[in-house]
C-alpha cells in the first residue's frame, strides 16, 4: 500500500507539466523515504530526475517499494482537473494497476461547483440532483479524457483513477560529481535568456569565467550575448546570482532541450546550473524543502 498526501498539490501539477514534453512514459518509484522519477527523453540526450522526500508530505505511507508506470500526458490531463489550491493524495495498492488521485478543495465553495460538474456528465450512477448522496460515480465523458480513467466524486473530493502501465525504463547511475562551476540565479531570468536566445539560433554556449556567466548564441540572423554577474547581496534571496568557480568552463548545448527544462520555472524562484568540462550540465530547480527536479543534458561536442 502506498499513500501520500501533498497539501500543496500544485507542486505535483507543476512537476508533471515540467516533464511531460520531455518524456512520454516514466515510473514513479515509491520508497519509504521518497518518491522519485528518473527518465530519459526518446533520443537519450537528456534525463529528468525528480525527488520528493517523504518528509515534505503531510501524510506518507509506503509499505514496500513500488514502481508505478504512468503516461505523462494522461497524468497531466487528470492533474489539470485539480485546482491550484487543492491538496492531492496519491494512493496505490501493492499489486494494483491504477493510481488513485484524490483532489480536495480548500473550502466549501468548491462543493457547489462540483454538483454542476457532476450533473453535466453523462452516465451517472445516481440520479441528477442526488448531490447529498455520499458518493457517485461517473464515466468519463470528456473528449479530451476519454479512455484515460474513471472519475468518482465524493462530495467535496474528486477521485481519479489513472491507469498504470508496465514500463521497462533504463535506469542510469549518475555518479556524484564535484562540478567546477555552480551558478545559482533567478529561475525566471534563466527562462527569459533561453527564450530570447532561441530567436537567434539553436545552440547555446555557456561560458563561466571570472567576469561572470556568458550565454551566447550565433545564428543566421546574428549573434546574441548575455552576461550575468555575481550579485550575492541582492535584497531578496531569489534575486541573487551566486557563482562558484574552480576553473573556467565553456560548454555548448541544444537550446531545444534547455527550453524544455524551463517548464519547471514555476516550481521555484531559483535555478542552479552545475557544469564541468565535457560532461552533461545539471539544471536543478529546488522545490522548497520538499525536493527537486534536476535535468541532465549532454553537451554538443566537436566533430
Amino acid at each position: 500500500m502506498f499513500e501520500a498526501r501533498l497539501t500543496s498539490g500544485k507542486i505535483l501539477k507543476q512537476l508533471i507539466e515540467a516533464l511531460k514534453d520531455l518524456v512520454q512514459e516514466a515510473n514513479i518509484d515509491c520508497s519509504d523515504d521518497e518518491i522519485s522519477i528518473q527518465a530519459m527523453d526518446n533520443s537519450h540526450v537528456s534525463l529528468v530526475a525528480v525527488s520528493l522526500r517523504s518528509g515534505g508530505f503531510d501524510h506518507f505511507r509506503c509499505d514496500r517499494p513500488l514502481s508505478l508506470g504512468f503516461n505523462a500526458t494522461n497524468m497531466g490531463k487528470i492533474l489539470k482537473c485539480a485546482g491550484n489550491e487543492d491538496a492531492i493524495t496519491l494512493k496505490a495498492e501493492d499489486d494494483g494497476d491504477s493510481l488513485s488521485m484524490v483532489f480536495e478543495g480548500p473550502n466549501q465553495d468548491r462543493i457547489a461547483d462540483f454538483g454542476e460538474f457532476a450533473r453535466g456528465a453523462r452516465g451517472s450512477d445516481s440520479p441528477p440532483g442526488s448531490r447529498r448522496e455520499k458518493c457517485w460515480k461517473i464515466d468519463f465523458n470528456f473528449a479530451t479524457m476519454r479512455g484515460v480513467g474513471v472519475l468518482v466524486v465524493i462530495f467535496d473530493r474528486k477521485i481519479y483513477e489513472l491507469k498504470l502501465m508496465d514500463i521497462d525504463s533504463e535506469q542510469l547511475g549518475i555518479p556524484d560529481t564535484d562540478y567546477k562551476v555552480t551558478i545559482q540565479m533567478p529561475s525566471g531570468e534563466f527562462q527569459r535568456i533561453i527564450r530570447d536566445m532561441q530567436v537567434l539560433g539553436d545552440t547555446l554556449s555557456i561560458s563561466c569565467t571570472k567576469e561572470g556567466v556568458k550565454f551566447g548564441v550565433q545564428g543566421d540572423l546574428g549573434t546574441g550575448n548575455v552576461l550575468i554577474r555575481q550579485n550575492a547581496h541582492a535584497e531578496k534571496d531569489e534575486d541573487r546570482v551566486m557563482i562558484e568557480m574552480e576553473e573556467p568552463v565553456e560548454l555548448t548545448f541544444a537550446l531545444r532541450y534547455l527550453n524544455f527544462f524551463t517548464k519547471a520555472t514555476n516550481l521555484g524562484p531559483t535555478v542552479i546550473l552545475n557544469m564541468s568540462p565535457d560532461v552533461p550540465i545539471v539544471v536543478e530547480y529546488p522545490i522548497g524543502e520538499t525536493g527537486h527536479i534536476k535535468y541532465y543534458l549532454a553537451p554538443k561536442i566537436d566533430e
Binding site: 542510469l172 549532454a298 554538443k300
Partner: peptide, 14 residues
C-alpha cells in the same frame, strides 16, 4: 562543427 553527444556515453546503465 559540433554534434550532439548522447547521455549514455556519460552515465552507465544501472
Amino acid at each position: 562543427g559540433k554534434k550532439q553527444a548522447g547521455l549514455m556515453g556519460f552515465f552507465a546503465k544501472k
